[in-house]
């Protein structure tokens, strides 16, 4: 089975801080693999263990995004590609998905691909659109929010997806794409043995020139229909009262106010 996994490097948002101008304080912020992509990779590795084949990871980003491919190698990925070119800079969801789709087609040229797996969303802002958009670009089916793999063969897969109020079971024959939630698997830890073994393993770089489409206006800022006009800190303009005092006094004030609001 040929499985392709899209992984993204994101800032470790647990530690993100903003200064008084709303700018991100970058110093000391680590980059990590998008947490959901660990689940995507684990799902791919388990399918490979069951059916054989290759797990290839791909990321689009600046050269330092290679770090996430190294991490994927330590977990057991077979091959890794990075899509990196200044022509890809400024890409929104559409341009990102298009570029990834172009990259995926290059990777699939030799052996084709059966399944593409993405995380359900990335933690640094864009939410859950890249996976479905890649599927549309490639003209293949997708199932988003997959919470479990029910059954798989080398020809087709049956997955469960979480729709909020219902659970649906969907089946499709390859090629297709799924995006996975955290329920789908428990990611393994990177292995020290694999770390040593893959230290010098090649990471292939794909640039604009390697892709089939040679129209620059489909990539980066030029290929992005949306533009960020402005970023600013969240504002607050609400009327507020603050109380302090003994527990008794505070409970009293709350009680009276809740009465005033006709809640009790």
């Amino acid at each position: 089975m040929e499985i392709l996994v899209c992984i993204k490097q994101v800032p470790d948002t647990k530690n993100v801080e903003v200064d008084e101008n709303g700018n991100l304080i970058r110093d000391g912020v680590d980059s990590i693999m998008n947490p959901y992509d660990l689940y995507a990779l684990e799902t791919a590795l388990q399918l490979k263990e069951e059916h054989g084949g290759t797990v290839t990871v791909i990321t689009m980003g600046p050269p330092q995004a290679k770090e996430v491919i190294r991490e994927a190698y330590m977990m057991g990925a077979d091959k890794g590609y990075i899509l990196s070119d200044i022509k890809f800079a400024g890409a929104d969801v559409l341009a990102t998905s298009y570029t990834l789709a172009q990259g995926l087609e290059v990777i699939g040229l030799k052996n084709g691909y059966d399944l593409i797996i993405c995380g359900m969303e990335s933690t640094d802002g864009d939410t859950a659109q890249v996976g479905p958009s890649i599927a549309e670009t490639l003209g293949i089916p997708h199932v988003a929010y997959v919470s479990s793999i029910e059954e798989s063969t080398v020809e087709k897969i049956v997955v469960e997806k979480d729709m909020g109020d219902t659970i649906e079971v969907v089946e499709f024959s390859y090629p297709g794409l799924i995006t996975v939630t955290k329920h789908v698997s428990q990611p393994r830890l990177p292995s020290y043995k694999l770390k040593l073994e893959t230290e010098d393993k090649e990471i292939k770089t794909l640039t604009f020139d390697d892709l089939a489409d040679d129209d620059e206006t489909n990539f980066g800022l030029k290929g992005s229909p949306t533009q960020v006009e402005r970023v600013f800190p969240p504002e607050d303009d609400i009327e507020q009262v603050v109380w302090d005092g003994s527990g008794e006094e505070l409970a009293d004030k709350m009680y009276n106010e809740l009465k005033e609001l006709k809640i009790i």
Binding site: S97, Q129, P132
Partner: peptide, 24 residues
């Protein structure tokens, strides 16, 4: 709506028209 249905559907439609989509 940015529900499981909407988030799966909207990107497919936006991509089909090669147009912009802003989530959430």
């Amino acid at each position: 709506g940015a529900t499981s249905i909407g988030r799966s559907l909207a990107p497919r439609v936006a991509t089909r028209f090669r147009t912009g989509l802003t989530a959430d």
